[in-house]
Amino acid sequence: MITKEEVQHIAGLARIGLSEKEVEIYSKDISSILDWISELKEVDVTGVSPTAHITGMENRLREDAQIDFENKSAVINLFPDRKDNFDKVKSVL
């Protein structure tokens, strides 16, 4: 069982603000999902390598060349808060 304190800790790590009610719901939901997926414990995985890429693709190399993105103003227009062409970020402290 995941406690409410654990849920609040995870929510902090995930940067999600939660209401009291949500904390309760997720404590219940996440616990039941974890119970459900715990059947994986019965599988013997001794000596089995984890899958990193399903079709076995390995290091893809390409030229380290810059491509200019032309539509810069469209990106700037998406800033929620801006000053001139800068994205305005809230105070860190």
């Binding site: 849920v7 995870i10 790590l13 996440i30 089995v48 899958t51 990193a52």
Partner: peptide, 25 residues
């Protein structure tokens, strides 16, 4: 939330890594 929990310190081997091994099987 579920993913953050499974990847958080101390749980990686038990969840994500084990799942990727079962995936191989």
């Amino acid at each position: 939330m579920l993913g953050t929990y499974a990847l958080s310190s101390g749980y990686y081997d038990a969840y994500y890594l084990r799942a990727q091994k079962v995936r191989t099987l």
